[in-house]
Design a protein around this nucleic acid. Structure first.
Length: 173
DNA sequence: ACAAAGATCCGT
DNA sequence: CGGATCTTTGTA
């Protein structure tokens, strides 16, 4: 079952950890569907968050973050990698979750490459899209959630220290 | 109009 | 540790 709007319109700090273990579902051009559960995410929260793309206010690139939760925010980084984010919160409340890793595929650049993302996904809605959506996961007692600071945002000063990265770690023995 | 940096990854 | 590769953004 596809996860619906209400899930994504909550605050990003609730949505981000809740996305762990959920399936990211992608229907490719040939009709095949891949489902991989999410193992690593980061929360970016509002204009005051100096690590967030909304820190300069609304711009051409980040405008979709100001929409209601559920929209897809993709952008190209280092001229090579498409980063996948899902917008959260209400309208005019710029927040998003960066999907940094799915099962067997760690690293946001690798996720985008595997899902064959590009500019055309910008602004699409995971609650209605025919090619990218989220489904309830089936992870029970095997993992626990580890919280750390966000990766690659040293420019953000004190905000870089916020424990807004969430990772699923396999419980051992 | 220009320069600089970037929510990264890979090979050496 | 440096190169790839190009868009976005601040500054003038």
């Amino acid at each position: 079952m596809r996860i619906s709007k209400k899930f994504f319109t909550r605050d990003v700090l609730e949505v981000a950890p809740d996305l762990l273990g959920k399936f990211i579902c992608r229907k490719f051009k040939d009709g095949s569907i891949q489902r991989n559960f999410i193992v690593e995410v980061e929360a970016y929260r509002g204009e005051e968050d100096m690590a967030c793309h909304a820190r300069f206010g609304k711009t051409r690139r980040n405008q979709v973050m100001y929409e209601e939760g559920g929209k897809i925010y993709v952008y190209l980084i280092y001229g090579m990698y498409w980063m996948l984010n899902i917008v959260t919160g209400g309208k005019a409340d710029p927040q998003a979750v960066l999907i940094r890793g799915v099962e067997d595929l760690t690293g946001p650049g690798r996720v985008g490459k595997w899902l064959l993302l590009d500019k055309s996904f910008y602004g699409e809605d995971v609650t209605t899209s025919k090619r990218l959506w989220i489904e309830q996961g089936s992870i029970f007692g095997k993992f626990f959630v580890k919280q750390t600071s966000r990766i690659g945002v040293d420019y953000a000063g004190e905000w870089a220290k916020k424990p807004w990265r969430f990772v699923l770690v396999e419980r051992r023995k």
